[in-house]
C-alpha cells in the first residue's frame, strides 16, 4: 500500500525533532527547582526554637530555686551564676581560661588531623596493616583518654605536653576510624567508574577515593573534635599546677576546691558553650554544605 508507506515515512522523518521536544519536556517534568529558605523561615525554624527552649530552661531553673530556696553555695540560681560569669569576665579569669583552653583544643585537634589523615590513608591502602592495628585503634577510641593522664604526668610532668598527649590520644583514633569507614562506605560502582575512566593509583586516590570518603571523614573530624575537647577538659581538671596554663578545666577544679558552685557552673556552661558554638559555626555548616551538594540532605 503506497499511501500508507508514505504516511509511515512522514512519521519517520518527523521523528527526530519530535524526539528532541519530548526529551526536553521530560527533562523539564522530571527536574524540580530547588527551593531556597528565606531569612524569616530560617529564624522561625532554626533560631527561635532553641532560644525559646533556653529561656524556658532558665525560667524553670530560677523558679525551682525560688520555690525550694536551697543554699546558694550548693545550688545557685541563674541570676547568681550570671553575676559570677560577669565578675569572671571583668576580672579576666574567664576570657583567659577560655583562650587557653580553646587554643589547646584547636591546636591539639589540628595536630591530630595532620597525624590521623595520612595514617588512615596508609591503613586503608594496606590490608595487612589494617588487620594488625585496626582493633587497637578501635580500642583506643573506646578507651577514655583521661585514662592516659597519670601516665602522661609521669612521662611529661605537669606541662602542656601532658595535656596535648591526652588530647591526641583522644582525637587521633576517632579521626582514623571516621576516615576508614568513609573509605569503606564508598559505593563500589563509583570506584569501578573511576577505574573505567582510567584513574589508577594516585589519580584514583585523589580524584575518586578522597572526595568520595569525605562524608565519613567529616563525621570522623566532628567526633575527633568532640574527643579533643572532652580529653582536654579531663586533663585540665586532673593535672593542675606546674607549667600547665590555667584553662576552663582548671577553673572547674578551682570552683570545686573553694566549694563555690557558681564558679563550677560558670566553667561548665563555658565548656558547653564552646562545644555548641564550634558545632554551629563550623561543623554544622560544613556538613550541611557537603551533604546537600551530594543530594544526601533534603533540607
Amino acid at each position: 500500500m503506497p499511501a500508507e508507506s508514505t504516511s509511515q515515512n512522514t512519521r519517520n522523518t518527523a521523528e527526530a525533532p519530535d524526539n528532541a521536544a519530548a526529551l526536553a519536556g521530560l527533562d523539564a517534568l522530571q527536574t524540580r527547582g530547588g527551593q531556597s529558605r528565606t531569612a524569616g523561615e530560617f529564624f522561625r525554624t532554626r533560631v527561635a526554637p532553641p532560644v525559646v527552649a533556653l529561656i524556658a530552661a532558665l525560667m524553670v531553673w530560677q523558679l525551682t530555686v525560688a520555690i525550694i530556696d536551697p543554699r546558694p553555695d550548693i545550688m545557685p540560681g541563674p541570676l547568681e551564676v550570671g553575676r559570677q560569669i560577669w565578675a569572671s569576665i571583668v576580672d579576666g579569669t574567664l576570657p583567659g581560661a577560655l583562650a587557653t583552653s580553646l587554643w589547646r583544643g584547636v591546636s591539639g585537634f589540628l595536630i591530630a588531623v595532620a597525624v590521623a589523615t595520612p595514617l588512615a590513608l596508609l591503613i586503608a591502602q594496606w590490608a595487612g596493616l589494617r588487620s594488625a592495628i585496626g582493633p587497637l585503634i578501635t580500642g583506643l577510641q573506646v578507651l577514655p583518654s583521661v585514662a592516659w593522664v597519670p601516665a602522661a604526668i609521669v612521662w611529661f610532668g605537669l606541662s602542656d605536653a601532658t595535656v596535648y598527649f591526652v588530647v591526641l590520644m583522644g582525637a587521633i583514633p576517632s579521626i582514623v576510624n571516621g576516615m576508614l569507614s568513609g573509605i569503606d562506605q564508598i559505593p563500589p560502582q563509583l570506584l569501578k567508574a573511576g577505574r573505567v575512566l582510567g584513574a589508577d593509583g594516585w589519580k584514583l586516590a585523589t580524584k575518586v577515593v578522597l572526595p568520595a570518603a569525605m562524608p565519613g571523614y567529616l563525621a570522623g573530624l566532628k567526633q575527633g573534635w568532640a574527643f579533643s575537647w572532652r580529653s582536654l577538659m579531663g586533663a585540665e581538671l586532673i593535672a593542675i599546677g606546674g607549667s600547665i596554663g590555667f584553662g576552663l578545666g582548671s577553673l572547674l577544679a578551682q570552683g570545686r576546691t573553694v566549694s563555690d558552685m557558681a564558679i563550677v557552673l560558670t566553667a561548665v556552661l563555658s565548656i558547653l558553650l564552646v562545644g555548641i558554638v564550634i558545632e554551629l559555626l563550623f561543623f554544622n555548616p560544613l556538613e550541611k554544605k557537603l551533604l546537600r551538594g551530594r543530594g544526601l540532605l533534603v533540607r
Binding site: 560502582q189 572526595p211 568520595a212 551530594r294
Partner: peptide, 16 residues
C-alpha cells in the same frame, strides 16, 4: 586503550 563503559546506575561522582 581499553573501552568506555556505562552502567545501570550512571555512576556519576556526586561531589562534582
Amino acid at each position: 586503550q581499553g573501552a568506555a563503559m556505562m552502567f545501570q546506575d550512571a555512576g556519576l561522582f556526586p561531589w562534582l
